[in-house]
Design a protein around this nucleic acid. Sequence first.
DNA 1: TTGTAGGCGTTATCAT
DNA 2: ATGATAACGCCTACAA
Lengths: 328, 328
Amino acid sequence: MTIYDIAEKCGVSIATVSRVLNGSSRVSAKTKEKILLVMKEQNYQPNPFARGLGLNSMKMIGVLCEDVSDSFYATAISLIESYLRLIDWNVILGCTGRGSGLKYKHLQFLMEKHVDAIIIIGTPFNHTKDLDYLKNVAKKRPVIMVNSYIKHNNIYGIICDEETGMSDIVGKLAEKGCKSVLYLYDSLTYSGRQKLTGYKKGIATHKLDENPLLQNKINRSLEDVEQTVKKLIEQNVYFDAVVTSEDLLAIGAQRAILQMGKNMPIVGCNNSLLAQCATPMITSLDNQLEILCREAVELLTKLMNDKEVPSKMIFPAKLYQRESFIYA
Amino acid sequence: MTIYDIAEKCGVSIATVSRVLNGSSRVSAKTKEKILLVMKEQNYQPNPFARGLGLNSMKMIGVLCEDVSDSFYATAISLIESYLRLIDWNVILGCTGRGSGLKYKHLQFLMEKHVDAIIIIGTPFNHTKDLDYLKNVAKKRPVIMVNSYIKHNNIYGIICDEETGMSDIVGKLAEKGCKSVLYLYDSLTYSGRQKLTGYKKGIATHKLDENPLLQNKINRSLEDVEQTVKKLIEQNVYFDAVVTSEDLLAIGAQRAILQMGKNMPIVGCNNSLLAQCATPMITSLDNQLEILCREAVELLTKLMNDKEVPSKMIFPAKLYQRESFIYA
DNA sequence: TTGTAGGCGTTATCAT
DNA sequence: ATGATAACGCCTACAA
């Protein structure tokens, strides 16, 4: 079934069929009706490749992240897919993996498919080669970064102010009388750097213990974090609260602390389902993914309609208090 | 940059350029070399829409699930994406949502993009209208179902034998001396039905308590499951072990049981990260997603090469023992 | 080994 | 309001 078949069955030219297909007003009601009828009964569907060839677009957006199996990215992708779906855009998914090699290849794959824009969740790109490639991509297509940012023409960032969120947490812990806040983190993505900075600022502002042993970079694994925390306690490194860059780390830390017969406030980040599965449930800083993703898609539509958009938007984080730390 | 530009710069015809593009051997080494050089320096990329128009394929696979933000689906999608990536296929993602309305629309979206095949994770389709549409889709494109199955031409199922897995669990509980096994489940997908059947068979085989109050369908939410379990205990419904269709339910059940001052074996399903975040850590039945997804992609490639494939493949489940129930 | 030309199914610009 | 036709960029059968 092509536009030719429809045209023939209706006794009109393909131009007329194309017009009703694209909702042109310059078609008589009668012929339009007939064409629509024939289309329906023939179950006609326009060929997306032919259309793509002419319009140079198949209404597809490339969405990239490190690893969809991670609940944070999965949630983001889910939100973005549903928002894009509402306005009839499709998602081509790409996962770069957490390894180090040749991530720009994944950008290449998307560009080869001529996606109309690229949305990047988090910070998959760090190496110069990858970043250079990304900037080149931005010359051809808009790039929207969710919870990450690179200042560059045609790259837009929708981010959460986790820095303030984190330093506020430290402030609240100080109010409660904590003196030494242990910080555990697993990566220095854009978001990771923000949180670390927030922690440091909080510590400085409230004149808390600046012992460098209290800042620990570790793998994101329950075993590793439990081991690290236990070791610190055994070595008599004093701390009276724990903040982590990620819920999983907070869960492991809490487990280790309880096992060592101690108790103290613990706060994680990302407000994932994991936080609610731990006992006691973990208080967590939510980076408001729902808002970020909604705004990312919103920005995209504005961009497609040649409207003005900000190159960077910042939204506040929100603390979800649970059993592991209640301050008010 | 089109094939014409390259041809002109090389002083050859577009046919020759096309030949080197497609690795035809019928090109002299000299011209081939030159064309490749020019392509590289012009940074030429073939237009996927034009190619798609001619070949009727853009090497894209539609992948559908209910909800990527669920860790089970997210893991599956992650695996499938990476396996497809290896053989240069792209994933167009679709999420139907858990609601009831018009899910076949999502199949339509994928078909409108002329994907080469469709992979479905789990059981998003239940209504007759959706299923009829799915069967129609199967007339045009192969449909591969991961952890679900519908017997129909051109629909293939890669499934895990959770029924046996579940009845084995009941058997092991019986061995340990349990008499009344509480079963909690949240949905009757293909997988859900298998597990329920497995539970019932296990109960029957080992002559355990068949009290219908021990089979509870509830929402997948921590609050709901905790409330349900507490109510059962308060009403003096006797049970001495809990099995659930999903880790989250097991976690909630465990929490309620501990809070009520009781203790007993608890087993979940899906072996998600959640299971490890609970304390005690939850023993869980793993449906071997990694194998299922690998085989799904494998089957797809065979299908594309017109090789014979089985319409249904079944793999065994595997129990991951943790603190919540150790039987051996 | 290389070139010519038709076909893939649309959209859009002209005419009429 | 409608039709004829070029253009989109590639592939490939057939010719040379």
